[in-house]
């Protein structure tokens, strides 16, 4: 990603902006079931560190450290994604590298909550992203 940042730096106008949106490097997503009765928290998802994510954050820090960009801000934001079935939730969970695993006891609680759901229920995962704001240095 350092090469990509350098290519972008060359293509940016003076004082051009870079916004780097990535998953937060280290955080534990949580899972909940929401229906007409409200939100029921189920538990945490084991999320092993993703080397690609860590490398992306390190690359950005490096180009800032080397003076190629100025870091204007680095924000963290929590957001929720929703799934309308267990299978779509599992498909997303398995799409991650390493695969997201449910913490001990979470799977049975999730299945029980999903069986008892009311109309319009969704499975919610709470996640965290970072938004780094950089500007091209001139000179």
């Amino acid at each position: 990603m350092v090469d990509a940042l350098e290519a972008v730096r060359r293509a940016l106008a003076p004082r051009g902006w870079v916004f780097d949106l990535q998953p937060d490097a280290t955080y534990l997503p949580t899972v909940a079931v929401r229906d007409s009765r409200g939100r029921r928290s189920i538990g945490a998802i084991d999320r092993e560190p993703d080397e690609d994510v860590i490398a992306a954050h390190e690359a950005r820090e490096r180009v800032v450290r080397e003076g190629r960009f100025e870091q204007v801000a680095s924000l963290r934001r929590t957001y929720i994604t929703r799934f309308t079935s267990l299978s779509s939730f599992d498909a997303d969970r398995r799409s991650h590298t390493p695969v997201w695993r449910l913490a001990r006891g979470v799977r049975p609680r999730l299945i029980e909550a999903w069986r008892a759901r009311r109309d319009g229920a969704v499975i919610e995962t709470t996640r965290r992203m970072t938004i780094a704001v950089l500007r091209k240095r001139v000179g």
């Binding site: 990603m1 060359r10 940016l12 106008a13 902006w17 870079v18 949106l21 994510v53």
Partner: peptide, 21 residues
């Protein structure tokens, strides 16, 4: 195409890296 190498259409005001690892 990947982002490495000369990028067509420069210059740009804003670059977005959107969940790109």
């Amino acid at each position: 195409r990947p982002a490495e190498g000369p990028l067509p259409g420069a210059p740009f005001d804003v670059a977005l890296f959107t969940w790109s690892l």
